[in-house]
Amino acid sequence: MDNQELRPIPPKPPAPPTAGLPQVAVPAPAMEGPARKPRRVASTFLKTLFVVVLIGVVGGLVWLAAWLDSGAQETSDDGGSGIVEISPTPRATPFPLPREGVEPPDYRLGDCFKDFDPAALRSTVVACDTGHSAQLVAVFRYPAVGSYPGRQALAAKALEACQAAKLAPAANQYTLNFQRAYPSSTSWESGDRRVDCYVTADGGNVINAGALP
């Protein structure tokens, strides 16, 4: 056997000294999932709160609009209901004309009158293409049941009817005035519920065409 030189195994180097060295804290890795949960919850809460507030605001506006509309309707109707009639349906008093002694309850929208007096108890209805002094151009009817609205309310409703009237181009050929007629407390008690608007001519029976379209 060959002689081999035995060399001693060097000892392990001692551990490096740690005393006196600064200790550096290593931060823990960020936990993305748990860190975002509070933010996600807060965002959902804010969205829910916004939706609830928006619904409340919209609901309030709808209620306010409905309340205002109901109030306006009560004011304009003066205790009555219905619409202003401005188109003859059915058509005005049929032929044969003229018809004398026609009473106000029998007047029809579109009727033309000779020698018209709105306070008269009877009038003569004539064809609108013949000489006449007035024509019934708008009507409002109160319900059959109800208390007397009062003179001021009736006058206001008659004015509303005149403002709603639509006249034909032929009416521009004449100098016409609007004239209103409405029930007295006495005629109201006897069943008169109609408010009328007429166009009239100051010069007598000078109109020879219908004023309505």
Rank of each mutant, 00 (worst) to 15 (best):
A181W: 12
K166L: 10
V195G: 01
L121C: 01
P149T: 10
T186P: 00
F50R: 00
L176E: 09
I207N: 00
V26Q: 09
P27R: 05
A158E: 06
S185V: 13
A164D: 08
V53F: 05
L159W: 07
A15C: 02
F95I: 06
R151F: 14
P88Q: 04
P10N: 07
Y107D: 05
T75M: 08
V195I: 15
G56K: 03
E32F: 15
S123A: 15
V41T: 10
L46D: 00
D2Q: 11
M31N: 11
A168N: 12
P38V: 13
P105V: 13
A15W: 05
C128D: 11
Y142T: 08
P38M: 09
C197R: 06
K37F: 10
V145W: 01
R151E: 15
S147G: 14
P169I: 05
V41N: 04
D78A: 12
L136P: 01
V145I: 12
A144C: 00
T200Q: 02
I83K: 06
V126N: 02
Y107Q: 04
R151V: 15
A120Y: 02
R39F: 13
T44W: 14
Q135V: 07
T186Q: 14
V195C: 10
S70I: 03
A209I: 02
W67H: 07
G204T: 06
T44K: 12
T48D: 01
E32S: 13
V51S: 09
V57P: 03
S187D: 10
S70W: 04
L54R: 03
A201G: 03
S187V: 12
G101K: 12
S123Q: 12
V125E: 04
R7F: 10
D129R: 04
Y107F: 15
P105A: 10
L61S: 09
V84N: 01
Y198N: 09
P183H: 11
R108N: 11
N172P: 00
Q163T: 11
V84E: 00
E189V: 08
R180I: 12
R40I: 13
L46N: 01
N172E: 15
L6S: 11
A65I: 07
S184M: 08
R180T: 13
Q73K: 13
K12W: 04
P14T: 05
D2L: 12
Y182D: 06
I86H: 06
S43C: 14
V58D: 00
R99H: 05
D106F: 12
R141E: 14
L97Q: 06
S43V: 15
A42Q: 12
S190F: 04
W188I: 05
G56H: 04
C162L: 04
V52K: 00
N3F: 10
W67P: 00
I207W: 01
L6N: 09
W63S: 07
G146N: 10
D196S: 06
A153P: 04
L159D: 14
P38K: 04
V206C: 11
L109N: 02
L136R: 03
D202T: 15
R39S: 07
T93D: 07
V139Y: 02
K47V: 14
G210M: 02
A170N: 09
P149Q: 09
A92C: 08
I207Y: 01
E160F: 08
N177W: 03
A209T: 14
W63Q: 08
L64H: 09
T124H: 07
G146V: 06
R36W: 07
L46E: 03
A19E: 14
L136S: 02
H132R: 03
P105I: 12
